[in-house]
Simulated scan of single mutants.
Amino acid sequence: MQIIMKAKYLIITMALLALACSLTSAYDPSPLQDFCVAVKDPASALFVNGKFCKDPKLASANDFFLSGLNIPRDTSNPLGSNVTAVNVDNLAGLNTLGVSLARVDFAPYGLNPPHTHPRGTELFIVLEGTLYAGFVTSDGDAGNRLFTKMLYPGDVFVFPFGLIHFQLNVGKTKAVAFASFSSQNPGLITIANAVFGSDPKINPDVLTKAFQVDKKLVEYLQKQIWLSNS
Rank of each mutant, 00 (worst) to 15 (best):
I3Y: 08
I3F: 05
I4F: 10
K6D: 13
K6H: 13
A7H: 09
A7S: 10
T13S: 13
M14T: 15
A15W: 02
L16H: 05
A18I: 13
A18N: 11
L19I: 15
L19F: 15
A20H: 09
T24H: 02
T24F: 06
D28T: 12
P31E: 01
Q33M: 15
Q33C: 13
Q33G: 15
C36K: 10
K40W: 11
D41G: 01
A43D: 13
S44N: 11
S44L: 14
L46C: 10
F52Y: 11
C53Y: 10
C53M: 15
K54L: 12
L58P: 00
L58H: 09
L58T: 14
A61T: 09
S67R: 11
L69N: 02
P72T: 01
P72V: 04
D74A: 06
T75C: 05
S81N: 04
A85G: 05
D89H: 14
D89Y: 11
L91T: 00
G93M: 11
L94A: 01
L97I: 10
V99H: 01
A102H: 00
V104Y: 08
D105S: 01
P108Q: 00
Y109W: 09
P114R: 10
P114K: 12
H115D: 00
T116K: 12
G120V: 05
E122Y: 04
G129P: 08
L131Q: 03
A142S: 14
L151S: 05
Y152K: 15
D155W: 01
F157I: 08
F159V: 08
L168T: 14
V170K: 07
V170E: 06
T173Q: 14
A175Y: 06
V176Q: 04
A177C: 07
A179H: 02
A179L: 06
S180R: 07
L188F: 09
I191T: 14
F196Y: 13
D199R: 12
I202M: 08
V206N: 12
T208A: 05
K209L: 10
K215R: 14
L217N: 11
K223V: 03
L227T: 14
N229C: 11
S230W: 01
